[in-house]
Simulated scan of single mutants.
Amino acid sequence: IVGNGPQTGIKVERKQWYALWGLVPVGFVDTKELAGDAKDYEIYTRQNAGDFFLNLLTGIVTFQSRTVTVTK
């Protein structure tokens, strides 16, 4: 939680991808960019059911994902 936490309830989500079974980040999720000019927000990072199934499908090519959510 940054500042006083979420004030408006607006959520912005992005996928963060990793190669080599999660060892090497591919791309970058900039949480400050997702928050924009908001001073109060929450960052939540997780692997949800969608990520789990994507990871099962892409595990053959060694990619993994997680979801990053910023709530303003």
Rank of each mutant, 00 (worst) to 15 (best):
Y44G: 00
I43W: 01
Q7T: 10
F28Y: 14
A38H: 08
K72L: 09
G3A: 09
R14F: 01
I1T: 04
A35N: 09
K11G: 03
V26M: 14
G5C: 05
K32Q: 12
K32S: 14
L56D: 08
D51T: 03
V26P: 02
N55Y: 01
N55E: 06
N55I: 01
W17D: 01
G5R: 08
G3V: 05
D51F: 00
V61L: 14
A38F: 05
W17E: 04
Y18M: 15
V12T: 14
K39I: 08
G27S: 08
V24Y: 13
E13C: 07
K11N: 09
F52G: 10
E13V: 05
T67M: 06
V29H: 04
L20V: 00
T62S: 15
K15M: 13
V2L: 09
T62Y: 10
L56S: 00
R46W: 05
Q64H: 11
K39C: 03
G36C: 09
Y41S: 01
Y18I: 06
P6W: 01
T69Q: 06
F63S: 04
K32T: 11
N48D: 15
T67W: 01
G3K: 05
K32L: 13
N48M: 08
G27M: 08
Q7A: 09
F52S: 12
I10G: 01
A19P: 01
Y18L: 10
L20R: 06
F28S: 15
I10N: 13
T67R: 06
R46E: 15
A19E: 07
P6S: 15
T67F: 01
I60M: 12
Q64L: 12
K32V: 09
T31N: 09
F63W: 03
P6M: 05
G3C: 11
V12N: 12
Q47R: 13
I1P: 11
W21H: 10
R14A: 11
V2F: 09
L54C: 11
E33F: 05
K11P: 02
G27K: 04
V68W: 01
G59T: 05
T69G: 07
G5Q: 06
A19K: 08
V12Q: 11
S65K: 03
P25W: 04
R14V: 01
A38G: 00
F52C: 05
G59M: 05
T8I: 05
F52H: 10
E13Y: 08
P25K: 11
G3P: 02
L34I: 04
G9L: 07
N55F: 02
A19Q: 07
R46Q: 15
Y44R: 13
L23A: 13
K32H: 04
L54H: 06
G22S: 11
W21E: 11
A35I: 07
Q16Y: 04
L57I: 14
T71E: 07
K72S: 15
L57N: 08
Y41R: 03
P25E: 12
Q16A: 14
L34V: 05
L56P: 01
W21L: 13
F52M: 15
P6V: 03
D37H: 00
G3Y: 06
V70K: 00
L56T: 08
K15W: 14
Q7W: 01
T45N: 14
T71P: 02
R66C: 08
Q64T: 06
V29G: 03
A35R: 05
R14D: 10
F52Q: 15
R14N: 07
Q47G: 07
E33M: 10
